[in-house]
Nucleic acid binder design. Structure first.
Lengths: 347, 347
DNA sequence: TTGAAAGCGATACCAG
DNA sequence: CTGGTATCGCTTTCAA
């Protein structure tokens, strides 16, 4: 552990500042009052009346010293924090997800929570949960499948009053926002079938970690076509031009008349490659993406897509807040079924 | 402030757990040793030799109770944290930036820092700095222009051993990674001029907050053309199809033969709109983007772009680590000049 | 209206 | 080798 001398010998570049961080005791000393009074004034404690002159002296002293309260000390004393922890997913997420996180963060901020994104490098399961628990968050929002029942238990034991998973499956003991990837695939499959397509390809990204999302989407397409004369073909695809070109090269051999491309970005990649080998979209092959990015509207043909209605950041923030206030409540499971096909020109 | 009873009356759904969080004292009690010994064992303190049987008893007790150390208490005692704070920029950032952040977070994690992203809702300048300072981070990485010299001073006074700004301009007292947007524009301008274009438009996004980046880029184009027979026209553009369509509708009237579109996303938006009104790219109008996203390679014509060489997350992480270990060192200013034109088909 | 003091959880010194 | 104990910065009774 690094040694930090409490007061370094003033270097020549920093003349007059031995530079120890001011505490409330320093403020008290300067204002000529007790630390208690400082606390009362700075927190506007209503249960106690402090004379106006005293208040002014305290505030002035705090200002002069540049006093900033110490969050860790405060929450140690209080016995709880306002930290909402969000592990950063190891998987590269798209713009849809990033937008969602931004909104959520903003909404939680409004409710006076401090959002902490924690990149847990290479830790998994219980080990990761333990690392998160050290921060004693009041709530934990876990995207994807970064946690199991044991992990949830660890967090609850460490005082987390709410654990919410955001992903394809629920976890014992935690609240869950269930992103129904299955229905995303199902909608896409049904749409393509309804438009007369029968031999349907489904892109499965090769990027590791995406399987959690792509598998249920694939499964959804399968389900949509089961019992019909339609067939489903799995198409591994890496997110790069060569991979797409390779796939496009053997496209005619595959004999497919439609493809659900996992999401809009893979769809753009693949559609481009198909057009480059002379395939006509949608005449010879229909293409459907997902996520409804701006991008899709700009393609020619305009990309059909599955619009996914993520929960508003505000709603999720309120779910968290409710769970924190009533930690005894039964785990809420909220399934997001907002998948709808946006039919444009590519299908 | 919310009142949280220390031990809630066990609700009917949670039968046998009054559920107070285990502390090192609990572990000590269960293991039949003192808290000191627990600390020694759990931290593998080498200065002190503890007998193997005792170690086992302590570890077993910790395991049984599900003990997790309390980060706040620890760093309170230690007098410093390993927190690196990164305020989330209020401005919507693109995939380039998100990738950079991910990498940085990962690299800092490897150096055993805890990265905390803090969404400071609506706070600005010194006020924001104060909110950040409450967490007593050992270092603060500020993207964009979220902080001034006073803010830096607040953070340093609160014990931050390194403040690094990542953006277009340096701030007194802080280390700086200078993203040279000026040269991005300059490169684009010079490229277009060299290819015979003379009446050059420059897209300026209407989205608020992007001005910090777009202004220097515009200025760079101006500089590249100053003293030549080329002209520069400022083109406000919102990130939506209508705005692009409006701009495209009056394009011929503008009499431009080239446009630097701020970045690849705006470039795609605009190029699409131009093509939709029958303009040929690049014959009638050349288009250049920036950021070198995958997206650009997929467009037809393939999008020329300015590739921006962001510092590797690893390098920046090392800069932070160095600054933390030697807080007296003079502020490093590292200018990122890695802007190079990638000439494809649209120019 | 203000002050003294206890204590949150963990660590590290100094005795034993 | 192990156990008291002071301490980090802050809040909050309880007394004065």
């Amino acid at each position: 552990m690094v040694q930090i001398p409490k007061a370094a010998a003033p270097s020549s570049t920093t003349p007059p500042l031995p530079h120890s961080v001011p505490t409330s005791a320093d403020v008290a000393r300067l204002a000529g009052v007790s630390r208690a009074t400082v606390s009362y004034v700075l927190n506007n404690t209503s249960a106690v009346r402090i004379s106006e002159p005293t208040r002014r002296r305290v505030r002035a002293a705090a200002e002069e010293l540049g006093y900033v309260p110490h969050a860790a000390a405060r929450s140690l004393r209080a016995g709880h924090s306002r930290i909402v922890l969000m592990p950063t997913p190891a998987v590269p997420m798209g713009p849809l997800y990033h937008g969602f996180i931004d909104e959520l963060q903003w909404a939680l901020g409004r409710l006076d929570y401090t959002v902490v994104q924690h990149g847990s490098v290479g830790l998994r399961g219980e080990e990761a949960a333990r690392a998160w628990a050290e921060l004693r968050p009041v709530a934990v929002l876990v995207p994807g499948t970064g946690i199991g029942p044991e992990g949830v238990a660890v967090l609850r034991r460490s005082g987390a009053r709410a654990v919410v998973t955001i992903g394809p499956e629920a976890v014992e003991g935690a609240h869950a926002v269930l992103l129904d990837h299955h229905s995303v695939g199902h909608r896409a499959g049904a749409h393509l079938y309804a438009r007369g397509r029968r031999r349907i390809g489904v892109v499965v990204p090769e990027e590791r970690g995406l399987g959690v999302f792509s598998r249920p989407r694939l499964e959804g397409v399968r389900r949509a076509l089961s019992g019909t004369d339609g067939t489903v073909t799995e198409l591994p695809l890496g997110y790069d031009e060569e991979s797409a070109a390779r796939l496009a090269a053997r496209w005619r051999a595959l004999g497919l008349d439609a493809v659900f491309a996992y999401n809009d970005e893979y769809a753009m990649l693949l559609m481009r490659a198909l057009q480059d080998v002379g395939l006509r979209v949608p005449e010879e092959t229909a293409v459907v993406g997902a996520d409804d990015l701006m991008l899709g509207r700009l393609l020619r043909p305009r990309l059909s897509t599955v619009h996914i209605e993520l929960p508003a950041g505000r709603d999720l923030a309120e779910l968290v807040d409710r769970a924190v206030r009533d930690p005894g409540g039964a785990p809420e499971r909220r399934t997001v079924r907002g998948a709808t096909v946006v039919h444009r020109e590519s299908s």
